[in-house]
Design a protein around this nucleic acid. Structure first.
Lengths: 237, 237
DNA sequence: CCAAAAGTGTTGAATTTACACCCATGA
DNA sequence: TCATGGGTGTAAATTCAACACTTTTGG
């Protein structure tokens, strides 16, 4: 019979170790052509298994930090940024996913702003890759990124996470281009506008973006009283 | 700089221990009145923190089993059943969720068939509770169950998991009553029928259920070529 | 025959989708 | 004034929701 054993420090606890990793997405505008592309930072491994290969940023958890705080620390150490969106993705714990030792990785995913990602200083062992053309990564990290990409694209269709890629104010065209870049399909601007205006998710400001070549578009702002996404009882407290 | 450290067994790994718990749902028909109710089994703690309180079945992970296998073991040890549906729910890792030691719990949720749940022998320290009227549980298990309930209800609306509560063949009324019991609202039988017939999710058999008081309804069967739910790249391999 | 659930048909509302068209600005 | 993206209007197609109605069985 199994009983809940959150406490009690079982003797074999050391045989399974725990780590937190984070998939970090940014949207970078390529050249002059409009279609921006999803990019993510990877770190080069400097130790034994898969030494020299690229891997997701991550590491063991500190005793005094929660899982989300550990993921935020991954993010900050890798990019120098604080995230506008951070969510748990999945816990990966197959027996053979790490040669030698048994490691369970709790993976988070994060969205950061494009401009800030460009400013961020990156070290020698950090490089940004296009999310759709990754090299062979260490461990099962290719599958992890594939799952994170699927979640990002699925949630983009029914939530407001696209705003996490943009700044304080933005035009509807910018917001639409985020959707188009992530979902890799074109969206009718007229219908996109109506859908958002009816959703109360964004608030029109009185400012317009000048400096463009054509009619200056209105700037919008987040409606902070509407949650980015409904996560049920989890994000309440 | 943080580097991916799936391997390397950091020295402080033992300060955070890892457990797997499982929220098990069954649908039990109460008395003669039609509305069935969601129930779940809890185990009574026999050790130090929260001794005597009820808690989710769970325990430390074995070195040779995956996370899902550990959850399946929780399920079997508690109910004697193998699940028709088992999915990871969330990893809970707040610093103060367990007095004394630091425990990270990876929680799964499972659905089992009503009749089988009744047959299952339960020990002295296992009891089934109505999911909506739980006592104060050990640790943060009340919040965990609330989140599992939210996920169950959310997924019931856009996936086919209701079938996991039923046997090999079933009538449309039975399937509809599962939806009604979980979502706590009544559903139009005519529209429910059309929606399912158009979805290719179920296959009509030539058999009818006799013995009822009225016109014998047709029996249906799962369409096993349609996944219960789209989990993206995760359930593919 | 009667009651009640099984199953079919129909209608209007709400939503999605496609696309025509006017507006405002920089060059 | 012209090209172009910003912004509005509209109508067909599809989906959703409510409910009337017919069918089939046990009693």
């Amino acid at each position: 019979m199994v009983t809940g054993t959150e406490a009690g420090a079982p003797p074999d606890a050391a045989t399974v170790s725990l780590a937190v990793s984070t998939v970090i997405f940014a949207l970078r505008a390529d050249g002059e052509g409009h279609p921006a592309s999803l990019r993510l930072p990877l770190v080069r491994r400097i130790r034994d298994p898969f030494e020299g290969d690229w891997a997701l940023p991550g590491g063991p958890i500190e005793p005094a930090e929660s899982l989300a705080e550990a993921a935020g620390r991954n993010l900050f150490d890798t990019t120098g940024l604080r995230s506008t969106y951070l969510e748990q993705l999945y816990a990966f714990g197959d027996v053979d996913r790490s040669p030698g030792t048994r490691v369970v990785s709790i993976v988070y995913w994060a969205l950061v702003r494009a401009e800030e990602a460009d400013l961020a200083a990156v070290g020698e062992n950090v490089r940004w890759f296009p999310a759709d053309e990754l090299p062979g990564l260490a461990f099962d990290h290719n599958e992890i990124v594939a799952y994170a990409l699927w979640r990002l694209r699925t949630k983009m269709e029914y939530s407001r996470i696209a705003q996490a890629f943009l700044g304080e104010t933005f035009t509807l065209a910018e917001l639409r281009q985020v959707h188009e870049a992530v979902l890799r399909k074109s969206i009718d601007p007229a219908n996109f506008r109506r859908q958002l205006e009816g959703s109360k998710a964004i608030i029109p400001t009185e400012q317009h973006l000048t400096g463009g070549r054509h009619r200056p578009p209105r700037l919008y702002r987040y409606n902070s009283s509407v949650e980015l996404i409904d996560n049920g009882p989890l994000t309440r407290p």
